[in-house]
Design a protein around this nucleic acid. Structure first.
Lengths: 194, 194
DNA sequence: CACATTAGGAACCGTTCGGTCAACAACATA
DNA sequence: TATGTTGTTGACCGAACGGTTCCTAATGTG
């Protein structure tokens, strides 16, 4: 009952994600209102505060991000191919795209994680889920003989995540797609044992 | 001529580095003034603007950082030992220290690099210098038989840098020292060819 | 000692920030 | 149609921001 909301929450969140991704947490309310196509009162009715809106946007981004990665691995013919697909297309796209804005989740963790325990917690949980997923993929790859057997899948997952995080960071320093591919090749060689 | 400055520029810059490192570019002038032990007029007389102060602090940090790394490699008995010293002590200290604040340079690049071309430029130059240094170390290690010969030293340097950047980022996600060491071990195996 | 020059100190400025509020509009229910 | 409830709107608020100004204090130079 009561007057129905005139905008779609998820569409508004997607717009907010873009703005926060672009400007970080210091995106102003006006930036957000413009992109979300609503007025201040509606924003505060729907989300309560700028920080709540940020958390909702971050949650939506991280969740969608993990879903996308899961999809890539499901569609791939093999664990190794999935890992390469993910790194090559998903990550390197972010690296060599015109605007080097990296990953919204990592950006947020670097910018806010130290002082915002809520953000830090979401980031830790996301990393845990992502590493669990990577661990399963790598373990399956080991069973298929695609990866070395003498490494712990969890350690390998941690390693892959670190390489991923490093690639996204290095992309802000002007790393080219070709350089990124050489790095991926070297990282792969560590998993495949030459 | 004129009244002499009552504070030391470099000491003030070191204090500013700490504040910017802790709070990012959004550290307030009051935070800075308190830490630097000076008044607003003095700050603007000496640096002109908050942004100029930030650039001066970043320059000083990056320069000192590179000097420190160079020192580690010079003191190490071999390239491989130097690389391990650097990663183990330098990097993992940052990871497992109580406050996970990462690297001031990388933090700045992630937070500001997209929109502040001046910051992006310093970061690119620093990466270039750092990779050049790493490349020389790795090439020397290859001559001594410590590293695989079938990889380009520049590619290996890029790889090491990516792993470093990833470690600093992952440290914000709660990576423990032990996990970091496993990652370093895996990365080393990629350079040493098992 | 005068004078030019530069630093220190504190009040002050315009702007913009995140957030609030009261009036009004649109729905469900009765 | 009357009522209760919720969303929308735009004016508004106090606080804090980066930066300026102006006066005073301390130096080198003639």
């Amino acid at each position: 009952m009561g007057r129905p909301r005139e905008f779609d929450i998820d569409e508004a969140l997607d717009a907010a994600i873009e703005v926060f991704w672009e400007h970080g947490y210091d995106a102003t309310c006006n930036d957000l209102l413009g992109a979300m196509g609503i007025q201040k009162g509606s924003l505060y009715k729907a989300f309560g505060s700028k920080h709540n809106l940020f958390m909702a946007a971050l949650d939506r981004y991280l969740s969608a991000s993990l879903d996308r990665i899961e999809g890539i691995f499901k569609e791939a013919p093999s664990p190794k191919a999935g890992l390469e697909n993910w790194l090559q297309h998903g990550v390197l796209d972010l690296c060599s795209r015109g605007v080097r804005r990296g990953c919204f989740g990592i950006n947020s963790a670097v910018e806010l994680g130290v002082h915002d325990e809520e953000v830090a917690q979401r980031f830790r949980r996301h990393i845990r889920d992502l590493k669990a997923l990577l661990g399963r993929v790598i373990a399956e790859g080991q069973e298929r003989g695609e990866f070395r057997l003498d490494i712990d899948p969890r350690a390998a997952a941690e390693f892959v995540f670190v390489v991923l995080a490093g690639l996204l960071t290095a992309s802000k320093g002007g790393m080219s797609r070709a350089e990124g591919q050489r790095v991926i090749a070297l990282a792969s060689s560590a998993l495949e044992g030459n």
